[in-house]
């Protein structure tokens, strides 16, 4: 390659490194980038929180499904042993568990939501 070409290409590279003349608000650009990164971080946290809630809900449901039968059997056994009013009371508890299943899940979901909200709040406070 000719020396003049080398010199020209070097100068061309140097010229390309120079910004355009004229007004360019680099500070404003940087602020926009930081704001976008912050929004992305918040969105990521929100998605994680939602995923956590869904996961907690599913876990609670699974737990209810897997242990409810055993719990009912245990309660039934104790009810038979106690007899009389105790039996009636135990059966009432079974009713409450059977028909109140959805309310137990809601309780678990609420607990998970509260825990998630507490974690999110702590993160936001920490960031600010």
């Amino acid at each position: 390659m000719r020396p003049v070409a080398d010199e020209f290409e070097r100068d061309l590279q140097r010229l390309f490194q120079q910004a355009e003349p004229g007004g360019w608000d680099a500070d404003a650009f940087a602020r926009r980038i930081e704001a976008r990164l912050q929004r992305a971080e918040r969105l990521r946290l929100a998605v994680l929180l939602l995923a956590g809630l869904v996961g907690a809900g599913l876990a609670a449901q699974q737990m209810m499904n897997s242990t409810l039968g055993a719990q009912l059997m245990g309660l039934f056994q104790s009810a038979v042993n106690l007899g009389g009013q105790a039996e009636t009371a135990a059966l009432g508890q079974i009713d409450a568990l059977s028909f109140g299943g959805s309310s137990v899940v809601v309780m678990w979901l609420l607990a998970a939501a509260l825990a998630g909200a507490a974690i999110l709040g702590a993160r936001l406070l920490n960031e600010s």
Partner: peptide, 22 residues
Amino acid sequence: GRREFGELARRHSAGVRALLRR
């Protein structure tokens, strides 16, 4: 570090924009 990256953006945004315009 978002603020640190913001500083990088502040330094180099004009050059990136100039390249895109060119």
